[in-house]
Design a protein around this nucleic acid. Structure first.
Length: 283
DNA sequence: ATGTGTTCCTGTCCGC
DNA sequence: TGCGGACAGGAACACA
């Protein structure tokens, strides 16, 4: 499910509850997510204090004072719920664990963090904080789309000579890390680039245009997530799920929102996944 | 080396 | 209501 903006929203929602807190108890209710959870994960988490909660691409990274970092990926259906936390105070009242609640972390404050993932494409690992960039899940990730390293020159160079369609190029986490199916469709629509066009066949000025467009699309989604955060926290503590309106994604058969275009959003399948785009204004 | 298709898993929705 | 099939926000892996 979650792409970079949703993961960032989850991170921001967790900050107040998690940072600086000691993990009093870790309950591993199901050890087989996408991969087996790390050896003795419960024991290694218990007693550790979370110093910083960071994000790299779609990964949440919780640095611990034990010298290890807890790496969390939400996969397609992963969710994180907070219970027992009120604004400015904590109580110890938690709902009974539900189906697909795989990891439950009880904090010293009394708050509880629950990782729920129906499809179990999500993953967790523990690795030394000092060598995180070398972790096999993180080592080949490209630059952060909102960071300085991701700029026009970089993307032009990355697209050079690539025969893969623009859609696949932007989904490739080695080129830029954090985009998923939705935001790739949205960025290509805003940039007026056909998802089917080979990356190498996109003229440099149009590739350059993609950079601010990607930042804009992600930035707006993060903002929308931030404003929805309070609502979800009040409701049931579930983080990172918010309704965001998309211009192309999920709008097959609808009118293209590009001013003066008049086209109709189409759905095609590229490498097994749905692509939504306007064949008229995306060339 | 690159590019594409398959696969993991469960839930939901839609047509019959 | 039940049943079958398509589809879902990811990404490692196997193969051409």
């Amino acid at each position: 499910m979650p792409e970079l903006p949703e993961v960032e929203t989850v991170r921001r929602g967790l900050l107040d509850v998690l940072e600086g807190q000691r993990i009093a108890r870790a309950d591993i209710r199901r050890p087989d997510l996408r991969w087996p959870l790390p050896e003795r994960m419960g024991a290694r988490l218990t007693g550790a204090r979370v110093t910083v909660l960071r994000r790299r691409s779609k990964y949440l990274l919780a640095d611990l004072d034990s010298g290890e970092t807890l790496i969390i990926h939400l996969g397609m259906s992963g969710r994180i719920l907070i219970s027992g936390a009120q604004v400015g105070q904590f109580h110890h009242d938690h709902p009974a664990p539900e189906k697909h609640d795989h990891v439950v972390l009880d904090l010293e404050s009394g708050a509880r963090i629950t990782f729920n993932d129906a499809r179990r494409f999500g993953a967790m690992d523990l690795a030394p904080t000092a060598a995180l960039e070398d972790h096999w899940l993180l080592q080949s990730l490209g630059p952060e789309p909102l960071g300085n390293e991701f700029d026009e020159e970089y993307l032009v160079a990355a697209f050079e000579g690539r025969r893969t369609p623009a859609k696949a190029a932007l989904l490739d986490q080695r080129i830029v890390a954090g985009l998923g199916n939705i935001y790739v469709c949205e960025a290509l629509h805003r940039a007026g680039i056909s998802p089917r066009r080979q990356a190498r066949r996109i003229a440099a000025p149009r590739v350059r245009r993609l950079v601010p467009v990607i930042r804009e699309v992600l930035g707006e989604a993060i903002e929308a997530g931030g404003s929805s955060l309070r609502d979800y926290r009040q409701a049931d503590g579930e983080l990172g799920y918010f309704q965001h309106t998309f211009r192309a994604y999920g709008r097959e058969g609808g009118p293209c929102p590009t001013p003066g275009c008049g086209g109709t959003i189409a759905r095609i399948v590229q490498s097994g996944r749905s692509t939504f785009y306007c064949p008229r204004c995306q060339r």
